[in-house]
Computed example of a mutant assay.
Amino acid sequence: MSSPLPYWVGVALGAIVCVVLCVACRRWPGGWTLRAGRIIALLLAADAVTFVISPVVTGRWSVQTSLPLALCDVALIVAAVACWLPQWALAVELTWFWGLTGTLQAVLTPDLTASFPELEFFEFVVGHVGIVVAAFYLVVGLRRQPRRGSVARVFAITVAWTALVGVFDWLTGSNYMFLAAVPEHASLLSVLGPWPWYIVSAAGVALVMLLVLDAPFRLRSARSRR
């Protein structure tokens, strides 16, 4: 990014919205909380549609870069569905775990070449920060906690999706999910070893992070059974 200040301002604003929304949902529950979730869902869905359409409109569409195959792209769609239908437990679990592992890491170490006020800049900020906001809204604000066994389910789905994207990358010469090369900008993958070993290392780190994110709910369940 040529100027990181607008990006971090956007992240800070998203964090403020997230805290205010979660506190309000906990203190003043009611029908308005579901309507707030649907507003988030519409914003995320609009961001996803824009991501798909904008390369076509501008003539920059490419099979190597323009398909919604990255995990954050899939998480964007899943988070929109979860905010619209918070009773769908699996969508909530995927949003929570994907949002606070891969997407949060992408927020903190953004692989973003566009600068403010380019459209791609807003797509990145709204999409990535929006997923994290959705995760906290669902689990902290609405108290939709992951079920027992959610780590195994989410990890299996993640590995299966990664394998499919890896095959696609190999067939098309793409680098979705950075399975063929690390990001240009510094990220967690940059310190996990050379290709392809950083993929295995990343899977191990992801599993540990999933367990950490799940631990508070399992501890709470254990205390409630005593």
Rank of each mutant, 00 (worst) to 15 (best):
V9Y: 13
G10T: 11
A12V: 04
L13Y: 01
A15W: 03
V17Q: 02
L21Q: 06
C25Y: 06
G30A: 05
G31A: 14
W32P: 03
T33R: 14
A41Y: 04
D47W: 14
V49Y: 05
P55R: 11
G59P: 06
R60T: 15
Q64P: 15
T65P: 00
L67F: 07
L69F: 00
A70M: 11
I77A: 13
A79M: 11
W84V: 15
W84Y: 08
P86F: 04
F97G: 12
G99F: 00
L100A: 04
L100K: 10
T101A: 03
L104F: 14
V107D: 00
L112M: 03
S115Y: 05
S115K: 00
S115P: 01
F116M: 13
F122A: 09
V125G: 07
V125Q: 13
H128D: 09
I131E: 11
I131C: 13
A135P: 02
Y137M: 00
Y137F: 15
Y137T: 01
V140Y: 01
V140R: 03
Q145Y: 06
P146S: 03
G149Q: 12
V151P: 04
R153A: 02
L171C: 13
T172N: 13
S174D: 10
S174I: 02
N175D: 11
A180Y: 00
G193Y: 03
L210A: 06
A215Q: 15
P216I: 00
F217M: 03
